[in-house]
Structure formats: C-alpha cells, structure tokens
Simulated scan of single mutants.
Amino acid sequence: MLDRTNPGNLSKKAVLYRMVMAEHTCPYGLKAKDLLKRSGYEVDDRHLTTREETDAFKAQHGVATTPQVFIGEQRVGGYDDLRRFLGKPVADTKATSYRPVIVLFALTALMAMAASYVAEGSPFTLRAAEWFIAFSMVVLALLKLQNVESFATMFLNYDLLAKRWVPYSYIYPYAEGLAGVLMIAGALNWLSVPVAFFIGTVGAASVFKAVYIDKRELKCACVGGASNVPLGFISLTENLMMIAMAVWMAAASLGIPVGHAM
C-alpha cells in the first residue's frame, strides 16, 4: 500500500497523466507537474491529447477528473490529492477569509502613499490618508460592479435600506464609486460628502445591527457578491471610513481647522 504519511521514503519517481490538447492544456496538470518537480520527483509526463483518449483513461481508472498522479505503482489522485500527499495545505474555496480586504487595503494604502510621494515629496502626509480612503472606495466599488446582480443579492441579506427599497442595492456601488472619484479629485464636495456620509451611515447601522445585535453570521458584499469575507469588523470599518472622510471634508469646506484637506 502507498504510505501517504511519509512520501519521502518512496522512490522519487512519479507518473503524471494530464490533458494536453491543441485547444486546451489543463492548468491543474501544469501545477501538478511543477509541484512534483519542486518536491524532487522525476516526472514521467504522459499527455492525453484527445477527448476520446481522456474519457477512456477516466473509465479505465474509475476517476472523474484529470490530472492523475501515480507514485510507487499506486494512484495518488488529482492536484489537491497530490498536495495532501506531500503534506501541503489545500485551500477550502468555501471557507471565510479576510484576505481579499486585507490585500485591498494594503494596496490602496501603498497607492495613496505613492501618489502622495509624487505630489508632495513624501508618502507620509495627510493627503495620503485622504487618498487611501478615496482609493479604497473606488476599488471596492469596482469589485462590486463586476457583478452588480450578485452583489445586490448578497447586500439584501443585511442592508436596512435595501430591504425596504430594493433598487438601493443596485445604486449603492455606483454611489460609492462616484463619491470616491470625486474625493480623489477634490471636486463637487457638495455632492461627494453627503453621498459618502449617507451610504456610510446606513451601511454602518446595517452591519452593526446584523452582526452585533442580531448575531447573524453572514458574508459581506463589500468586495463583491462572490466573496467569502465574513460580515463584521472589516465591513463596519469600511463604512466608518466613509463617514469619517465625509465629516472631515465637510469640516474643511466650512472652514473648520482640520489640517490639510483635499
């Protein structure tokens, strides 16, 4: 039997069957070949070059998918099975994760600092902080607008206004994107400020009620309708950032000393 707990004791030879056709090369086959080579295996790379050949291989071995990896005359399985065999983690596509928003905020922060460096000679300025919020709003809107229907469906699970007036779930990402672009430009504050304040306030109240009062476990629509980001602190932070930005800009417009504002 194949000792899956200690692959290091086996011969470092593997046979890989993968689809390589004129119109399609299986990406998981390429990943499996690369993983085997990086793990020190000599790979006997066998191509399945036609649909008929692939179907015959599946029928012969009683498998539903390719690629298939064989080590020590025993079948290891597909790409995920190979990762498990080699003791490597396998991503759970259904698991909740904060990674999308962490990456998003990290990149928008770097974008803001880069823009500040070009404009003012330093990445650490008040304008960089302002741009960070505005850039984040635009990128978040972009992700939602990739599939507005999917976003709206998820948004309706918790947003208080959208539940009462469904069209708001479609308007929201456009409003967020518009406010963010205007804030980056420092233009039409009379429009961007109330829009950001309104959607931020409704959003914050909705998230707070759903998560901290009703104790519901939901996915956040903040990075689009297909995300696995849990509704909670990050979602609340997104809305509080919009409120803070709106208040900051409103104060600056009224002449209240708040430092440099856009």
Rank of each mutant, 00 (worst) to 15 (best):
S150R: 11
G87E: 03
Q74M: 11
E149C: 02
A95S: 03
F85Q: 05
A106I: 09
I102A: 15
L145S: 09
S122N: 15
A141G: 06
T96F: 01
K144G: 04
L160M: 09
R84D: 06
Q146G: 13
M154R: 09
K144R: 12
V63K: 10
T66P: 05
F135Y: 13
F155K: 00
F132R: 02
L142G: 08
P167F: 12
F132C: 13
F135A: 04
D159A: 01
A112P: 12
Q74N: 14
T66D: 06
A95E: 00
A95I: 03
E130I: 15
L104D: 04
L110D: 02
N147C: 06
V69D: 01
S136G: 09
P167H: 12
G77V: 13
S97E: 06
A106G: 14
R164N: 08
Y98M: 10
M113N: 06
F70L: 11
L161C: 07
S122A: 13
A95Q: 03
D80A: 09
Y170C: 03
A129P: 08
V148D: 02
V139C: 02
Q74D: 13
A134C: 07
A119Q: 05
V139E: 04
V166G: 00
G87S: 05
A129D: 06
A152C: 10
F85A: 02
L156W: 00
S116Q: 08
D159T: 07
V103T: 13
I102L: 15
D81M: 01
V69I: 14
L140V: 09
L143T: 05
L104W: 04
S136D: 03
V138G: 00
K94I: 01
K94E: 04
E149T: 15
M137N: 00
W165V: 15
M113S: 04
L107D: 01
A134S: 13
A64L: 05
M111D: 07
V69R: 04
V90G: 08
Y168P: 04
R127W: 15
I171S: 00
Y170V: 11
V139G: 05
A106S: 13
G72A: 14
N147G: 09
K144S: 02
G87K: 06
Y117L: 14
E130N: 14
L82K: 04
G121M: 02
T93Q: 09
I171N: 00
M113D: 05
F70Q: 10
V63T: 14
S169V: 09
P167W: 11
M113R: 14
D80W: 01
V101D: 12
Y158P: 04
W131V: 12
G72L: 10
R83E: 08
F132W: 14
Y79Q: 01
W165P: 05
V69H: 01
K163V: 03
Y117I: 08
L145F: 06
R83V: 04
G72W: 10
L161V: 15
T108H: 04
S150M: 08
V148R: 09
A95G: 03
A129G: 15
L160P: 01
E149V: 15
A115K: 10
R83L: 13
W131T: 12
S136L: 02
